Computed example of a mutant assay.
Amino acid sequence: MCGAYVPRDEKFHHEPCGIYKSDEAEKAVTLCKECHFDRHHGTKAADVRQKCVEYLHKLYGEAGAKKE
């Protein structure tokens, strides 16, 4: 998201989050702690969400970030 290094053991973000989250690769994005916080609580949450969705769609097509 921001270009910061993210350690391999950092927990990934589920996109979509909430009741639709799962551990499937096409629904997972690794974010630094600041971007992860912004995704859930920041004023940029909608922008971060959109970038996550676009990234997952680019990698996995319509299956990326798909709600079940």
Rank of each mutant, 00 (worst) to 15 (best):
E15I: 03
Y5P: 10
C2Y: 15
C35E: 08
P16A: 04
H57M: 07
L31N: 07
C35D: 11
Y5N: 08
E62Q: 09
D23C: 03
G3Q: 06
K21I: 01
D23A: 00
Y20L: 05
M1C: 06
C2H: 14
H36F: 07
L59H: 11
I19T: 12
C35I: 04
L56H: 04
E24A: 08
H41D: 06
C52R: 01
L56G: 09
G42R: 01
R49L: 09
Y55E: 10
K58D: 14
E15S: 05
Q50I: 05
C52Q: 06
C17T: 12
H14F: 02
V6I: 14
H36N: 11
Y55H: 14
K58R: 12
L31E: 12
V53T: 12
E10N: 10
Y60H: 15
K67N: 12
P16Y: 03
E15P: 13
E54W: 15
Q50D: 13
K66Q: 13
K11S: 06
D47K: 09
R8Y: 06
E54I: 05
H36E: 05
K44G: 11
D38R: 01
K21L: 01
L56T: 03
S22Q: 07
G18K: 09
V29T: 08
H41F: 15
E15Q: 13
A45Y: 13
T43A: 13
F37P: 00
V29Y: 00
G18V: 12
L31R: 03
H57D: 06
K66E: 10
H14W: 00
T43D: 14
Y5T: 07
A4G: 07
A25Q: 07
C17Q: 14
A63P: 15
E26F: 06
T30M: 02
P7V: 13
Y60C: 11
V6Q: 07
A46F: 10
L56Y: 02
G64T: 02
K27T: 02
E26S: 09
V29A: 00
A45K: 10
R49W: 13
A25G: 03
D23G: 04
H41P: 01
V48C: 08
A63R: 02
V48M: 05
D9A: 13
H13K: 03
S22N: 10
R8L: 03
P7R: 04
E10H: 09
A28F: 04
K11L: 05
T30K: 08
E34A: 02
A63V: 15
E24D: 11
R49S: 10
F12L: 06
P7W: 00
G3W: 15
V29D: 06
H13V: 03
K27L: 02
D47M: 11
G3E: 08
K11W: 08
L56E: 02
